[in-house]
Design a protein around this nucleic acid. Structure first.
Lengths: 128, 128
DNA sequence: CGCTTTCATTTCGGGTCCGTTATATTCCGG
DNA sequence: CCGGAATATAACGGACCCGAAATGAAAGCG
């Protein structure tokens, strides 16, 4: 094998390993979520939730819709669902009463803490 | 970065995740999935798909249902949906015609390759 | 052979999510 | 102060998912 070929093979092997590990991680976490029956959030909902908790406030319906590239009713409905679960709350923006400010809750923070711990746990269990 | 370093980094990415990094990774990947309008799979569907592609065959409806801890109709319906998307195929087990063998497809493998690459990409962008 | 078991699917009623469209409220500029 | 713009939500219809129960098809077994 020429050096260039070895170099290529080395890179590809490394990339494949990374991708393989990533996919195993994705599988392990999702399997745990399904088996533990802890998850009924859609991809959009989990995206909204993590956006609220990780990106700087304030968060509005319009802002979240733009950030995610979805329509506003998607945000409103997701907030209805996750609000009923206690994961987020809403309040009117008194400065501009057309706006709704989405806020975090203790329960929502705990939910994401558990999710993060699950990802860490499954990452640690990955075969080397 | 030398290939060996890339290899190490790939492993460390999975092993050394901290909770805050794990949550940021989860957020970044989901945000990309939503923004890029990738086929919207449920948590159960993505779990079924990765199970088919990562765990040793053969895969049957009954086996997948037991592995995931869900009812068989959940598997049948998910296979209908993902089959229509071309991500998996089904065939009768000729040895025992009651069984259905679930098989991988090129399209399904490409889908998971892209997903894995996305996870790797977002992991690489994480703050250290 | 019949009877039972096993496996997968279909059916059923209820629920949620989606995009589109329509509505209500609030702000703002002339 | 008033008509238009902006914001969020509600209403509508179609699609999908769910669990439980019913159905269909094949194998096992006495």
């Amino acid at each position: 094998m020429r050096p260039a070929e070895a170099h290529e093979a080395g890179l590809l092997m490394a990339v494949e390993l990374r991708a393989s590990q990533a996919l195993k991680l994705w599988h392990a976490v999702h399997l745990a979520l399904v088996r533990d029956d802890v998850h009924d959030l859609t991809v959009r909902q989990i995206t909204i939730l993590t956006t609220i908790y990780l990106e700087p406030p304030p968060h509005t319906v319009r802002g979240l819709a733009a950030r995610l590239g979805v329509t506003k009713p998607v945000i409103t409905r997701a907030l209805n669902t996750m609000g009923a679960m206690g994961l987020v709350t809403r309040r009117r923006d008194e400065a501009d009463r057309r706006n709704v400010i989405i806020q975090r809750t203790v329960e929502g923070a705990l939910y994401l803490d558990r999710l993060a711990d699950l990802v860490v746990e499954k990452a640690a269990e990955l075969p080397r």
